[in-house]
Amino acid sequence: MTNLVNTNINGDAVGFACEADETLLDALRNRVGLKGVKEGCGTGDCGACSVILDGTLVCSCLVLGMEVEGRTVETVEGLSNGAELHTLQSKFIEHAALQCGICTPGFLMAAKALLKNNPDPSEEEIRYALAGNLCRCTGYDKIVRAVQATAAELREA
């Protein structure tokens, strides 16, 4: 059965049609056209599909599309204001915190959620907060540095 879901994505009111057993990941990619959310595993293990739902970081592969009726969803597409990149995005580029890039949208959203709650995280706190995101390329260190650099810059701003 196809249902209509009305929600708010990256600040815009959005309506999309969705099957009852369709995940938010599939709905975002295939119905809304937001291809920034990636599917790495589909089982909650890799974090590539991370989005922020009503302020909470979640794996969109473990949310049903229909659950977001009347909620707010933030995806990587909402990070930049259109003209400039978000500090997290520029720092990821500066620190070479990505190679193939498939994990990057998930890391960016997880880092955004972390810095909102904790503007000055220790390295250990960053590593724990990003433990739900897997990266096969970078070896994580550069990602941690990029998040530290972002935190420092945002604290000054």
Partner: peptide
């Protein structure tokens, strides 16, 4: 239980 993503749910 799980990661921050899992904890949120």
């Amino acid at each position: 239980i799980g990661s921050d993503q899992v904890q949120g749910r």
